[in-house]
Amino acid sequence: MSTNNCCCCGGVDEREQKLQEIIGKYKNTKGALIPVLHEAQDLYGYLPLEVQKKIAEGLEVPLAEVYGVVTFYTQFSLNPKGKYKIQVCMGTACYVKGAGAILDKLKEKLGLNVGECTDDGLFSLEACRCIGACGLAPVIMINDDVYGRLVPDDIEGIIEKYKKISE
């Protein structure tokens, strides 16, 4: 279980205070739920029950509706994200250029399924929709870095690079 990115370690009060500020900022505006979820996810890295519950209470929206919105959009996550968030583009261009093989290689290398995070909290793996870099297909993103024209053999080097940075 990842511990470095969850709610049960340091900074809980500070984050909760920030969450209440976010809710306060949007409260009483129409369509507040999605922007609040975005900012809350930036704050916590994901949207666990306790966070969704506070949002539901704060915005006076039923929790079932909040959860419905969170699970509708792939952008929102119920699971913690790694320090390095790997997104594999599964848009049409990337898909036909072999994104599936890239994803398989990542799964094998990291021992993860899509939506999961490594035990050390370093990497999380997601499949996403088109990120708008079709010319570079197949593409992955690690946080804000883009890697294009990939072949499965490129994966190992990329992973090692991030492992080194974080040492």
């Binding site: 039923p62 419905g68 699970t71």
Partner: peptide, 9 residues
């Protein structure tokens, strides 16, 4: 009561 809704897509 609002304890059920549509989830996922």
């Amino acid at each position: 009561v609002a304890v059920i809704d549509t989830m996922e897509r």
